[in-house]
Write a protein that binds this DNA or RNA. Sequence first.
DNA 1: CTCTGTGAAGTCATTCACAGCG
DNA 2: CGCTGTGAATGACTTCACAGAG
Lengths: 235, 235
Amino acid sequence: MKREKISELTTNRLSVYLRCLNALLANSVATVSSQRLAEDFNLNSAQIRKDLAQFGEFGVRGVGYDVRALRDHLTVILGLDRPHRAAIIGAGNLGSALAGYYGWSASNFSVVGVFDTDPDKIGLHVGANAILVQPLENLSRVVEEEMIDVAVIAVPGAAAQSVLNTVMDAGIKAVLNFAPARLYPRFGVKIKTVDLTVSLETLSFFLARPAAPYVNQTGNGLATYSNKTNGDEHS
Amino acid sequence: MKREKISELTTNRLSVYLRCLNALLANSVATVSSQRLAEDFNLNSAQIRKDLAQFGEFGVRGVGYDVRALRDHLTVILGLDRPHRAAIIGAGNLGSALAGYYGWSASNFSVVGVFDTDPDKIGLHVGANAILVQPLENLSRVVEEEMIDVAVIAVPGAAAQSVLNTVMDAGIKAVLNFAPARLYPRFGVKIKTVDLTVSLETLSFFLARPAAPYVNQTGNGLATYSNKTNGDEHS
DNA sequence: CTCTGTGAAGTCATTCACAGCG
DNA sequence: CGCTGTGAATGACTTCACAGAG
């Protein structure tokens, strides 16, 4: 085991491994080899071993990995053993949907506040669990009171950097950004951008050249998490 | 110019370049050098030139690129000169929000149908523009009638592969997937997955190790589109 | 014998650096 | 001159292949 910097590609895969392990656990599988994991999920077995080896020696030679133990280790490594609390900025379509998204709890996240600057939105209750929309000015106070550690930016691109600044001023260090904009974080702040425009336009490019569309980097039809294109599959 | 396979990393950047060019055009900038583009948007100028050179010689030596002409070229290259029509599968929170998302039209997309299998959802009108939710069985017929070429999967992970099969049976070749699941496409079908679970868990990992969190690959605080971590910024 | 952990090799992407055009 | 287009150099990630533990 070496304590080096962990690349984002690795952390993305850790999340996938955790998902796989939970599925195996649900099927009462007690032990799994990197080979078996790789086959089931179209990854390279050496990559799985290398990824895991960065955090410790979890495997048993000749046997494989204990599913539950590895699951627990990954949960701790990913920081999912402690709850996270999120604020959503922007109470439009997307922000409201995210406020009621069922996927948060599986990763030990909860949405504890929705914020907007539009007076027409403030005071509304949005999402499946009807969270109150507060003025953005409240953010800093609520972040402290509610121990919020993650912000989700769901505002138009033009407003995104300004919102990010407000979010950083409130002391938040981790941001999930849905605005189609390049954002400049301060030192020590992590942003993850989900850019639907880029995704759509890449699909459009594919449709525009059906003959020789892409380099298929793996040839196995499931490039999703096994290579650096990061979230894209093609065959 | 060489006619080779184009990597996904390149197409993602093309989309970003197009966005930048539109912004310049809105500011009445007529000509731009790769140097200037690189500075404004924290990219490497050689990479911009290399990306563009794969499709033709658009620049003028000693001068730079004509903003409007390059914009028009990229629009055609990305296939955005022709309209695309999308179906959304899954009328839950996320699917409904996407049906009313304002970002579609900027890329010449329109949402022309929403589908679900839940009898309670069928017949409802969802999203900002109140699109009727139809039974998934209608998909194949509507795809043909409405010339749909893109599908958006917004269903729970467990149902995603089955929905993808239905979508592919209907003849759709490009899919945007929001389900947290690894999907197996058939040959000639392109899938782009937006996995919110992976994004959240990566943020959680960052928060769990504030000391030596990541390799910062560029050091400029805007790694977003300039490197292979693809959508992530950190400083 | 099986399967992990890992150095070495291979593949792919980015950046450098410059020849050459306008 | 300045800037593009591109070979060469560098760097990053993945895969191979095997020593060694159990």
